[in-house]
Design a protein around this nucleic acid. Structure first.
Length: 423
DNA sequence: TCTCCGATTAGAC
DNA sequence: CTAACGGTCTAATCGGAGA
C-alpha cells in the first residue's frame, strides 16, 4: 500500500449551462449556444461553436447581440432549477465511483480513484456513463494533486486525441516536463489575470516555469497561496479533498434589478425576498447570524446619474435564524439609508458571524427573544411542500417592478423532469 | 511593537 | 424607442487603531 500514487480525478462538465439547455433541445445539437447571467447581462457559458465564433466569456450580451444573432447563435437566460437538477444527477453518478469525492461546484467534482483497478477503463467509463445517463458531456482529468488534476482536465478538453480523458500520472518525467512547458501559466488553478501579469514580468510564462521557480522568491513576492500552487504542481498535496461540505461563513443575497428602483416600498419588497432566501439557507445549515449588513447601489455604469452606494452593518445582541427578526433589522437599515432622488440598480443583504444553532448564546442583559423556531420550521415545510414563496414574509416579492429581466428562459422542463424515475 | 479588525484584493466558477 | 456590464463565496493581505 505504501507509496501508492494518488489518482485524483477532476470531472468537469463541458459548457455546463449550454449543455444542460441542449439536453432538452436536441435540435440545437450543432447550433452555437450561449447562456446569459442574471438580467440577461453577460455571457456565462458558451458552446464550442460559440467559442469558435470568437464570443468571449463575460462579455455583455448587448455588445454582441447583433453579431451573435447574425451568426445563428441561440441565447438563453440562466435557468438554475434546470442546471441544479442536472448537476445532482451528474454528481450522483460520479460519487458512485469512490467513497471519497468532493462536489466542487455546480459542474465540477473531484473523485479520489487511488487504488482503483483498471483505472484507465474506469475513467473512460465515467466519461461515457455520464453522457449516456444525463446527456451532459464531461472531461476527466487525473493527477496526484487537485492542481494537477485540474491541469489534466484542461488537457482532456483541449487535446482532441485525449477523447475527453487524460491522466497526468501516465506520463514519464520527460513527457510531464514537455507538457507543462506547453501550458501557459494562466491555465494553472489559482493563477488569475492579475497574477499572470506579475508572473510574466518575473519570466514565469508556463506551468513548467512556475513548477521550477525559486520557492523562496515566489513566497516572498507572491505569498503563501502561490507557494501552495507550486507545491501542488510538484505533486505535493497541499489542498485536501473536502469530503464534508463545511457550513458557509456568510450568506449573501443580492441582485441587480430588472429596472431602476426609485420607490422605497419596492426596495423593501426586494429586500424581504433576499432576507427570506438568506435566512432559509441559514436554517438549512443549522446556523444563526449575529451580524446583518444591507447595501444599496446606484448604477455605476451611468456616470451621468448621481451615485450613492450606502451600506450599513448591525451586530445583533442575540444570534437568530428567524426571518422576521432579521427582516425587521434589514428594513430598519434600509429605511435609514434610503434617500429619494436616486435610481437604485442593485441591493443586497449579507448575514455574517454565522454560528451553529446549538451554540446559541443568550445575552443576559437583553430580554430573551421569543423563539419562533417552530413557526420557521412550519414555514420551511409549507414552502417545500407547496412551492417556494407560498408562505411569505412582509411583502415578499409581490411587486414585480424590480424582478430580473429574463427574456430568453427555457421552459420549466424540471417540473416534469422531477417526475421521471430516478436512474 | 504587537495584535486585532475592517477594508481591500484576488481568485474560482 | 433606449439602454443595456452577474452573483456568492473564501482566504490572504494591508494599514490603521488601540494596547
Amino acid at each position: 500500500m505504501a507509496g501508492k500514487v494518488t489518482q485524483l480525478a477532476l470531472v468537469d462538465c463541458n459548457s455546463f449551462y449550454c449543455s444542460a439547455e441542449r439536453v432538452f433541445r436536441p435540435d440545437l445539437k450543432t447550433t452555437p449556444i450561449v447562456v446569459l447571467s442574471n438580467n440577461d447581462g453577460c455571457i456565462v457559458s458558451r458552446t464550442a461553436e460559440a467559442k469558435a465564433l470568437g464570443i468571449k466569456m463575460g462579455v455583455p450580451w448587448f455588445q454582441i447581440k447583433d453579431f451573435a444573432e447574425e451568426h445563428g447563435v441561440v441565447a438563453f437566460s440562466s435557468n438554475y432549477e434546470l442546471y441544479s437538477d442536472l448537476s445532482n444527477r451528474v454528481m450522483t453518478i460520479l460519487s458512485s465511483y469512490s467513497p471519497r469525492s468532493e462536489v466542487y461546484s455546480i459542474d465540477e467534482c473531484f473523485v479520489d480513484l487511488t487504488g482503483t483497478p483498471r483505472l484507465r477503463d474506469v475513467t473512460y467509463e465515467m466519461h461515457e456513463r455520464v453522457l449516456k445517463w444525463t446527456g451532459i458531456p464531461v472531461g476527466v482529468g487525473v493527477g496526484s494533486t487537485k492542481t494537477l488534476a485540474k491541469l489534466a482536465n484542461h488537457v482532456a478538453k483541449t487535446h482532441p486525441r485525449s477523447k475527453g480523458v487524460f491522466n497526468f500520472n501516465d506520463l514519464s518525467i520527460t513527457q510531464q516536463e514537455k507538457l507543462l512547458r506547453q501550458i501557459p501559466v494562466d491555465e494553472v488553478w489559482g493563477v488569475g489575470r492579475k497574477l499572470t501579469k506579475r508572473l510574466v514580468s518575473h519570466g514565469v510564462t508556463t506551468a513548467y516555469d512556475l513548477k521550477i521557480a525559486n520557492t523562496a522568491v515566489l513566497r516572498s513576492e507572491f505569498g503563501v497561496v502561490m507557494e501552495r500552487t507550486q507545491r501542488e504542481l510538484q505533486g505535493i498535496q497541499c489542498i485536501d479533498l473536502e469530503d464534508m461540505q463545511a457550513p458557509k461563513k456568510q450568506m449573501l443575497r443580492s441582485r441587480s434589478f430588472g429596472k431602476p428602483v426609485t420607490n422605497l416600498h419596492v426596495l423593501l419588497d426586494a429586500l424581504s425576498v433576499f432576507t427570506t432566501s438568506a435566512v432559509q439557507a441559514l436554517r438549512e445549515q443549522h446556523s444563526t447570524t449575529s451580524l446583518i449588513q444591507v447595501f444599496l447601489m446606484t448604477n455605476r455604469h451611468r456616470q451621468d446619474q448621481p451615485q450613492y452606494n450606502p451600506s450599513m452593518v448591525i451586530p445583533l445582541p442575540t444570534a437568530t435564524n428567524d426571518t422576521q427578526v432579521v427582516y425587521q433589522w434589514v428594513s430598519h437599515l434600509a429605511e435609514l439609508m434610503w434617500k429619494d432622488g436616486y435610481a437604485y440598480a442593485k441591493a443586497g443583504v449579507m448575514l455574517g458571524e454565522l454560528a451553529p444553532e446549538s451554540n446559541q448564546q443568550f445575552d443576559l442583559l437583553e430580554p430573551r427573544q421569543r423563539s419562533n423556531s417552530k413557526l420557521m420550521v412550519a414555514i420551511d415545510g409549507l414552502n417545500a411542500r407547496f412551492g417556494k414563496g407560498c408562505v411569505r414574509v412582509s411583502t415578499g416579492g409581490i411587486f414585480s417592478e424590480w424582478g430580473m429581466k429574463q427574456q430568453r428562459k427555457s421552459p420549466a422542463y424540471t417540473t416534469s423532469w422531477s417526475h421521471l424515475p430516478v436512474i
